[in-house]
């Protein structure tokens, strides 16, 4: 029972690793511009999903292992929009708008549930997320969607596993206000869109509610003593996180060009959580900069390991390394958090 302290941050290891990979990438002549372009794309894909975790962490509701709940709401918003013929940027924006009520409603129920399992949120959230994803699998099969680009052409009923967004709103945000600087593609519209989300969250943290939310997360008994309704504020944070996760999913699909249904969102929480933790949010408060730095580090690692894996003729390796890194970082953070709480 003698306390053992954990070795220094895994960030150091990751950064060293990235530098090695970067060296390798340069050695095999991968142009820097293509790396940067890919990094932009991966940022757009994942940034909002990672940011969506922040409200819940800051209110003390923990890392949102139930992120698939928001993701499913996003999927629902998108297929409904597509069914009714949403197209282009309007279609994309509409898909977010349609998912918000679903996300808010499921977030309310989910938040209520999390309040009842206080202290053990992670595991309860994980399985709530799994359950929602698997019950939605039933829904995707039976739901009365008719759009020919979304249902199986022959054999099998219900929606396809992956729905191509070509002809709907594939990359509509990515192409918005996009310009080139030399070989580098700057997706200004996407960056602006994500920027607006980040700025609104920043201003939210400077409101009374935002301040109360942060207090609830940092010191629950303090907040309670000083007039914060913990349950209410935590529920609000869960709704915010779920709504942001649904928007993040819409952005992801738009960029990726496909809506992935069925079991695709099952494991969505883990990479996002890992990226956030990688950004250095070992403390009780997470700042937006942690999320952004985390996404950059996490995605660079993935991006750089791809070409190296290909040289080794084992293309799966990039995915395997990502899997190991993701889980290692979460395990490290869990232990670190327990150490801080003095549970060891």
């Amino acid at each position: 029972m003698i306390k053992k302290y954990l070795p220094p941050l895994p960030q150091v290891i990751i950064i060293v690793f990235i530098i090695i990979l970067l060296g390798l990438a340069i050695k095999i002549d991968i142009p820097a511009s293509s790396l940067i372009n890919d990094l932009f794309i991966r940022l757009i894909l994942n940034c909002v999903l990672v940011i969506s975790l922040i409200p819940m962490v800051n209110s003390g509701a923990g890392l949102n292992f139930g992120l698939p709940i928001g993701a499913v709401a996003g999927l629902l918003g998108m297929v409904i929009t597509a069914q009714f013929g949403g197209k282009g940027l309007t279609g994309f924006l509409l898909s977010i708008a349609v998912s918000i009520p679903f996300a808010a409603a499921s977030g309310t129920v989910y938040g209520h549930m999390l309040n009842r399992v206080k202290g053990r949120e992670e595991i309860a959230a994980t399985f709530t997320g799994f359950s929602i994803v698997s019950i939605m699998c039933l829904f995707w099969v039976v739901a009365p969607f008719t759009h020919p680009q979304m249902i199986w052409v022959l054999g099998g009923s219900g929606l396809r596993n992956t729905i191509g967004l070509r002809g709907f709103w594939e990359k509509s945000l990515y192409n918005l206000m996009q310009f080139k600087a030399g070989d580098i593609i700057i997706p200004a519209g996407s960056l602006l869109f994500i920027g607006i989300i980040i700025i609104s969250l920043y201003f939210f943290s400077r409101t009374r509610t935002g301040m109360m939310m942060n207090a609830a997360g940092e010191n629950e008994s303090f907040a309670r003593i000083n007039g914060v309704n913990i349950e209410k504020i935590r529920k609000l944070s869960v709704i915010m996180s779920t709504v942001l996760a649904s928007a993040g999913t819409c952005i992801y699909a738009q960029q990726y060009g496909f809506i992935e249904l069925y079991s695709a969102p099952l494991m969505a929480a883990f990479p996002a959580i890992s990226a956030l933790l990688l950004g250095g949010s070992s403390g009780k408060r997470v700042f937006l900069r942690h999320a952004i730095l985390g996404v950059i580090l996490y995605q660079s690692l993935y991006l750089l390991s791809l070409p190296v894996a290909n040289i080794l003729l084992v293309p799966e390796m990039a995915e395997i390394i990502r899997m190991i890194v993701t889980s290692f970082i979460i395990l490290y953070a869990l232990a670190k958090k327990s150490e801080e709480r003095g549970d060891v």
Partner: peptide
């Protein structure tokens, strides 16, 4: 129980007045 250790002195002093009396709060909540 008595402090928000990671918050600033300013936040700690004004917190309760803000949370219970809506002091320093504009109509937008900012």
């Amino acid at each position: 129980d008595g402090l928000l250790p990671e918050h600033s002195i300013a936040d700690n002093i004004t917190f309760t007045k803000i949370s219970t009396k809506r002091a320093f709060t504009s109509r937008t909540g900012l």
